[in-house]
Amino acid sequence: MLKVALIGAGKMGISHLSILGAHPDVEIVGVCDTSKIVSDVLEKYSGFSCYTDYLKMVDTTKPDAVFVAVPTKFHYKMVKDLLDRNIHVFSEKPFCLNPTESNELFLLAKKKGLVNQVGYHNKFVGTFQEVKKLVKEGFIGEPQHFLGEAYGPVVIKKKSETWRSDPNEGGGCLMDYASHVIDLINDILSPINSCKGAMLKSIYSKQVDDAVYALVGIESGTTGVISVNWSDETYRKMSTSVTIIGSKGKIVSDANELKVYFKSDEHPKGYSKGWNVKYVTDLTEEVNFYLRGEEYSSQIDYFVKAVQGEVPNTVNTFESAWKTDLSISIIKNNSK
């Protein structure tokens, strides 16, 4: 059994905890949260040992791995403390407030040979995995243009402030929402390393951006558009999509549906010339425990297997999350 602890039992933390709780190879040895009510409920009804001091928790419970699901501004210090204690780490996204911090953590994890993963769950979504495969294997030819989008109803009125509305804590649409799209583009094509112009707009929030519109370039030289708005109430929940236009075809995909057009007969097996539609249901492996999308269970399962040495630690590594932080900072700097 792998001994796992959690720091931060908020929305993502509780979700991770439930999936970990149902995982046959995992024993939850401790949960750290500053909210007394959350700790009380978890202790009473789940029987977890709860702590308010994460160092005390890890020194007492000696976990093999820790999940960090606290506001981004705390990631750097906590993850560093954990790596220093030779503990494998799964961190929520976005990784750090700036790329200098994430780079240091990536190098430290690498030096120590510890398993490291960040919660960009879209990489475990069947449609996006297939998009990456189609692009990397050259089936749509040379990418000419891309569009990364995400829309959803997170902030749809002026309202009370939380850490997500504080730019110093990692809040705002660019950090919290657009980071998913940026990370996907970085992974499917190549990392965003230039920005020709960006607008960070506030719609309802006082201190942070609610929408991000940017013209960006990637390492390979291709350019594209990022368009993200978390104040769009026409969406029931977050909807993330990528469009990639290539010399041999075009892909339009969200988390549910992948549409791909091949200009010629050069297409992979199972596809044909012209438009093809694949659904996530055809591209998804069943999970052992389902909570809120296969990808949330799969990413945890992958991390657990990586710690057990059964899979390589190559998806959503600190290194890829550092590059995403770098892309975020490039966009941010160009919006000023």
């Binding site: 509780i14 979700s15 905890l17 439930s18 999936i19 970990l20 709780g21 149902a22 978890l42 009804y45 789940s46 029987g47 425990f289 389902y290 909570l291 809120r292």
Partner: peptide
């Protein structure tokens, strides 16, 4: 299901 399964995973 999201609540049933959340509680189920948490052992509540």
């Amino acid at each position: 299901n999201v609540i049933t399964d959340l509680l189920l995973g948490l052992g509540m």
